[in-house]
Design a protein around this nucleic acid. Structure first.
Lengths: 248, 248
DNA sequence: AAAGCCAAGCTGGTCAGACCAATTTGGACT
DNA sequence: AGTCCAAATTGGTCTGACCAGCTTGGCTTT
């Protein structure tokens, strides 16, 4: 009851999309037509609108092609960015990998970044401030900031890795648990300052500063994570239940 | 703009999506909430499912963020340029990522490696020599060598990344093509020397030497790749006749 | 018998209305 | 003034229906 599903309220079309993707990878060839929407709906036990949303998402991911009044066809057997499946590692392992890679990404971004890059980074920062002002976690903007930085390298492999690591970290149950046991408000100014420093260094086209700013940021995350991890284990031993929940 | 007026039955959600995007760029700020789906449907004179599909497409494009039971929020004023439709990246992008990561993996392996690590690396090297003696490509042993090195870091995330990058590289069609256009025999002694140097540095627990040995190795791969890539493109343009075509 | 033609049926595209669950909000109560 | 609860709001999903273009199979015509 306490620990059953703090789970992800996943939209059902996402589940259906994954099942369709799996079905295709298992037994469909390129160019082949999928069953009709109505049949898929019956197969998966959902309504047609849900199936339509799943198909649309896969079409946008470049996996399917919808031809009106004809059918849905497979145009690629691999779903876009699931190249790296990083699951089952602790947040500390994940963080170490980020510490290895992201400072260098920041350095390259400082060299190769364009005005468009800076604009997108500034956008992410603006959104982060807004989310913080709302008293909300800035997960979306944080994700976007790091991915945009990776995109600035022009290297799709690095984008994919950075994206995977970020997702794996925030989706880890431990990470979520920890967020419940610490006052994130105390850290938000630091997160914001970290990102602003990275942005400034990148925009100034200073690779070394960008790299060290990113290193500092990730070190701060690691420190916070260690504090929280310790607090959590202590709380687990001393507080059986009824710990004051933060609003999420 | 869209020079296809006659027979382009555009799906209505695409029209709605464009209108929403225009609306946002005209008068919305980041973080701001959009009107409710029902209101948008009324505004644009379409049904709610159509609005939902439009919102979903913009969400997948990284422009909007949907929060259940709360609303739809602007996270970027511009549509993210084909982030999700990476058609797979070239071998050079892949190699650059490896150049960023693997030297550091080697350095960490030199610090944390155990006797078991050294034994497995030596095994991989022995296999490599044997495969070369057989006149075969040493892909299996090469793969194993790099993965074992990553495993020596004790970080599962790094193992996964290293493994993914290696697979993506060798599985890329371009990589395979190139192998057909160059005499790999000429390079094998170099590959072997490279790996032996890495192994020696790791076993000597010298992180700096391990890192630079790995860098040298990857630089050699890059050079060979460039030579082969050039040779291939020249062969394609200048030698229509008598080029040893592979049967496809 | 072969060629062409047309209607019935699939299939995606869209619409309308309804209910649910989670979030938000505002007022009532303490 | 602070707390707490219930109603309103909002996205999530379902049902069932109708439309328009493509497909197919049978039928007519040559």
């Amino acid at each position: 009851m306490l620990h059953d599903p703090p789970s992800k309220p996943e939209r059902s079309f996402e589940i259906v999309a994954r099942r369709i993707a799996a079905m295709i990878q298992a037994s469909y060839r390129i160019g082949q037509r999928l069953p009709a929407e109505r049949d898929l709906a019956k197969t998966f036990g959902v309504s047609r609108p849900t199936v339509r949303e799943a198909i649309l998402s896969l079409a946008m991911a470049g996996m399917l092609k919808v031809r009106s009044n004809s059918g849905v066809y497979v145009i690629s057997r691999q779903e876009a960015p699931d190249v790296h499946k990083l699951e089952g590692f602790g947040p500390f392992e994940n963080l170490e990998a980020r510490q290895l890679i992201e400072p260098q990404i920041a350095a390259i971004a400082a060299q190769r970044g364009t005005e468009a890059t800076f604009a997108q980074l500034a956008e992410a920062l603006a959104m982060m401030r807004w989310e913080h002002a709302q008293g909300r976690e800035a997960d979306t903007s944080d994700h976007r900031f790091h991915v945009v930085l990776a995109e600035a390298t022009g290297n799709g492999a690095l984008v994919s890795i950075c994206d995977s690591l970020w997702r794996a970290q925030t989706e880890s149950g431990i990470w979520q648990e920890i967020h419940n046991h610490m006052r994130m408000e105390d850290y938000r100014p630091m997160w914001l300052r970290d990102h602003e420093a990275i942005f400034a260094a990148v925009q100034a086209r200073n690779p070394r500063k960008a790299s060290s700013a990113m290193t500092r940021h990730l070190n701060n995350i690691r420190d916070a994570l260690m504090v929280a991890s310790k607090a959590k284990s202590m709380a687990a031993t001393k507080l059986p239940k009824n710990s004051p929940r933060k609003i999420r």
